[in-house]
């Protein structure tokens, strides 16, 4: 069960008509490094035309550019990062990051890790995990380029995070997922429903282990760039029941999470999740979770 028609039909059942989108390149200012440096004017002088992304604090779309946005001196000095607009959302859902102990469970190549460090103004501490050596090298380069000072990196599967013996106030589970067609032109050719189901299983294991590492009043942000409800709303519905988590309301653009998926009714609080069908951004899904508070 795969192919464009198969997935197109699924999206239609979920209330969305598939349409082609052209993604715009986006950047995120690293505020700790770029403060007082007139970065927008400097980039403009280089021929990089930017447009503020209205739903992001520090995000800009690259409208036009005479140079590669990923190869300017300002980029190499860590004043900004190239990061897709939707990918900038999950980290922004955490409340009060300053001074906190944070786990980035699947960190490489580090766009969200450096965003966390920036929002924390390099206070507190981040533990960043990934399993792939090559990706960890990219993560380390990213941390060095952005002058991040509060992060420790381990080559460790997020499903083994409890072996660290640490508790965290904030946990980002930006889970490895099936991706979406807007970010991968061969997506329909390469993906099957079996991949989606396998990934959903891994994501549940990651969430389970993340909860074991969470402090009592801690927050988890779960995100994927998958459009498939098995990896998104169905996993959240499962987490409410199996992990005793509550989905928190968030002030964020995007559509409400689906509460009826292929005829199955989900917990009504799944609507608090944010779903992004490809349009202004790539496809994306994000939710903020806390332990259920006893009455």
């Amino acid at each position: 069960m795969s192919g464009r028609e198969f997935f197109q039909d699924r999206y239609k059942q979920l209330g969305w008509q598939l349409k082609e989108v052209t993604l715009r390149q986006a950047i995120r200012l690293n505020n700790a490094n770029s403060k007082g440096k007139n970065l927008i004017d400097r980039l403009s002088a280089l021929g990089v035309q930017l447009e503020k992304i209205p739903f992001l604090e520090s995000g800009y779309w690259v409208v036009d550019s005479k140079v590669s946005a990923g190869a300017t001196a300002e980029y190499l000095l860590g004043l900004y990062s190239v990061q897709e607009a939707a990918a900038q959302i999950p980290v922004s859902l955490f409340s009060d990051l300053g001074g906190k102990k944070v786990l980035d469970a699947s960190a490489a190549p580090g766009g969200k890790t450096t965003q966390l460090a920036d929002l924390m103004d390099n206070t507190g501490a981040i533990v960043a995990l990934d399993v792939d050596k090559r990706r960890i090298v990219a993560l380390s380069n990213h941390l060095e380029r952005c002058h991040v000072a509060n992060t420790a990196v381990y080559m460790l599967d997020a499903r083994r995070a409890p072996t660290l013996g640490m508790k965290f106030d904030r946990i980002l589970v930006d889970a490895p997922c099936s991706g979406n067609f807007a970010a991968d032109k061969n997506w329909f050719k390469n993906r099957t429903i079996k991949d989606v189901e396998r990934n959903a299983g891994v994501q549940r294991e990651m969430l389970t282990k993340a909860v074991e590492c969470l402090t009592d009043n801690g927050e988890i942000v779960y995100s994927t760039c998958s459009l498939e409800p098995e990896e998104d709303e169905l996993n959240m519905d499962w987490a409410i029941r199996a992990l005793d988590l509550e989905i928190q309301p968030v002030d964020c653009i995007g559509q409400d999470g689906l509460t009826k998926v292929f005829g199955k009714l989900l917990d009504p609080t799944v609507a608090r999740c944010r779903r992004f069908w490809p349009d202004q951004t790539q496809g994306f899904f994000a939710a903020k979770l806390k332990r259920r508070q006893s009455a």
Binding site: G99, K101, T123, G124, A125, V127, I136, L139, S140, L143, E144, H147, A149, N150, T151, A152, V153, Y154, M155, L164, M166
Partner: peptide, 21 residues
């Protein structure tokens, strides 16, 4: 690597990268 006092307790022997390289 240069670590700060908050990060140091989280840096175990098997770390890959820590603090300021």
């Amino acid at each position: 690597y240069l670590v700060n006092a908050q990060l140091k307790p989280l840096v175990r022997a098997d770390f890959y990268y820590a603090g300021v390289y």
